[in-house]
Write a protein that binds this DNA or RNA. Structure first.
Lengths: 244, 244
DNA sequence: CGGCATCCATTTTGATACTG
DNA sequence: CAGTATCAAAATGGATGCCG
């Protein structure tokens, strides 16, 4: 195998991009943020990747220590991929980038060609949702967004997104649509406004519902990341004065 | 022009990567974080990019509103590129990714092929260095790392990295090497330890020097981003129960 | 089937040369 | 200095084949 292409720069960002800068790589990490996935799950979620490239990416990520292959137990012997600690750190590091994208490039409603999964949006919120307000609380929520369903589980002061179907009962169910979710996460509207406008609807345990909305609200505020007015005061540094 | 390649996913991260996911793009943004640059500055800093690709990238970034072309004043008529507000937000959003890379992929010392610039490291710290401890203080520092020199200016409670050479006097000068800088920013050692070990040396105004080290120290602590023990409790969600 | 490897048509990228 | 033109090499995507 010919040597992997590198930027050959001694820089944290360049080294990070040497590892996860190629096409599809960060999206594979995003997929695994909602729990371990099988090869075919990944291939289905990442429409257009081409199976051979997926295999290559997964191999690279395993070699870098971002994810791990695991064989499932005998009843259903399958391969599953899951993030390592380094991989989960990477997922968290990608959150500001995702928020930046949500803030500036999701104002157009979803187009016909675009695929969509509710967990893509939830996953960036969930990881940092430490339920400091009610540490002991356990709750499970189901989100219906467009035609996609996903689940948020809060327990032990921590939140997880779970993809797929589950048998455990939920405490509350939320209904919304992709444009609304994008607007809320992108900071173009608030949960409260979307709720009163009927663009988000909730049913189930009212107390746990209120708790969730509060939690999401405060999290979104802390992730807003809007730009301040600070500018460079030095227009163009003379990088090499014309002294030839 | 044939349409740009897109992931076609309605997701913040995918949309962000549609804009800045291609090769070199984020590194161009990193370059502009230390102030406006000319075309040839970029080409020189990004060894290997090839001038035609650089021109394409710059055009794309301008079209997306990440940077802006500017013509300099008559004495020295040149083209300069500078980040817009959106571009500066992007630079800030890339910081966690850079820290992740620094933490996990810079433990090997700089290899012979790798280029290096001190501002690549400083720039990720500087933007979030709001000098809350001494709001009124103004200071200018010069960093000598390996063969690279860069400048940090603190004023109005905000820090800027300035590339290139400057005539204004400095308050203090720091000397170190790339391995030490990487270890400090990657969290593998502390500034204090590196200082006592003589791997960082400083001269100049002792008060302002102490102030800088304090500021860097507290900033690094808040950016550590180490992984906690929280795991997914649900091994593999049954994404589609075998009910065929 | 699920989990890849192989082959080939298209795109992207890298390196160099060239121009106003 | 600030790019454009050109061409070879590498990366990607699609389709298909193979094997337990």
């Amino acid at each position: 195998m010919v040597r992997r292409r590198s930027y050959d720069q001694y820089c944290g960002l360049a080294h990070a991009l040497d590892v996860v800068g190629e096409r599809w790589t960060l999206l594979i990490v995003r997929e695994l943020m909602s729990g371990p996935k099988r090869y075919s799950d990944l291939a289905e979620a990442l429409a257009g990747i081409g199976t051979s490239l997926l295999a290559t990416r997964v191999r690279q990520l395993e070699a870098e220590g971002v994810l791990r292959r695991r064989l499932l137990d005998p009843p259903n012997v399958h391969v599953a991929y899951e993030l390592t600690d380094i991989g989960r750190e990477l997922g968290r590091a990608a959150v500001p980038l995702a928020m930046w994208g949500a803030r500036h490039f999701t104002d157009a409603p979803r187009s016909a060609e675009e695929s969509f999964r509710a967990e893509w949006w939830l996953v960036f919120l969930a990881d940092s949702l430490n339920a400091r307000q009610s540490p002991g609380l356990c709750a499970e929520y189901e989100f219906h967004v467009d035609d996609s369903v996903t689940r948020l589980r809060i327990a032990d002061g921590h939140a997880d997104v779970l993809s797929g179907t589950h048998d455990t009962p939920v405490d509350a169910v939320l209904h919304s649509d992709s444009a609304t979710v994008a607007a809320v996460i992108g900071g173009r509207t608030t949960i409260a406004d979307a709720f009163t406008a009927g663009r988000i609807q909730g049913e189930g345990d009212p107390e746990k519902l209120a708790y969730l909305l509060d939690l999401l609200n405060s999290q979104l505020r802390s992730m807003s990341g809007r730009s301040d007015g600070a500018q460079h005061r030095d227009p163009v540094a003379t990088s090499a004065p014309d002294d030839d």
